[in-house]
């Protein structure tokens, strides 16, 4: 399943990439592939901006503005004038996901 096209903020600086594969391992949506010992963004529209790749790329080759893709979280953020926060307690609807 894919969400809206051409919106993900994901960026890769191939110059910094060492081909360590960790982004491929942590990404839950198979966004990255390795080709010629370098990562490449193969399916950007799959990206849900979870931020796992950027956090785990120790060479700083990945940028993504991460956050929760959750409408009520964003509404809460707007109403409280904060970053989008999800009111999730980690239960039920939030079992396999966030918010």
């Amino acid at each position: 399943m894919q969400y809206l096209r051409n919106v993900a903020t994901l960026k890769l600086n191939t110059g910094l990439c060492t081909g360590c594969r960790l982004c491929v391992i942590v990404c839950p949506h198979a966004v990255f592939e390795i080709e010629n010992k370098k990562a490449l963004i193969a399916n950007i529209d799959n990206c849900m901006e979870c931020g796992a790749c950027a956090l785990n790329c120790q060479f700083g080759a990945i940028y993504v503005k991460s956050g929760v893709g959750c409408a009520s979280g964003i509404l809460n953020g707007i109403l409280n004038n904060t970053e989008p926060t999800c009111g999730c307690t980690g239960t039920g609807a939030k079992e396999s996901s966030c918010c």
């Binding site: 799959n46 849900m48 893709g69």
Partner: peptide
């Protein structure tokens, strides 16, 4: 239905913001 974005496993922050 829009609120279901919070429960899905594939919607992105940028996408939901744009849609909203």
């Amino acid at each position: 239905a829009l609120n279901f974005t919070g429960a899905t496993t594939y919607t992105s922050l940028s996408g939901v913001k744009l849609e909203m």
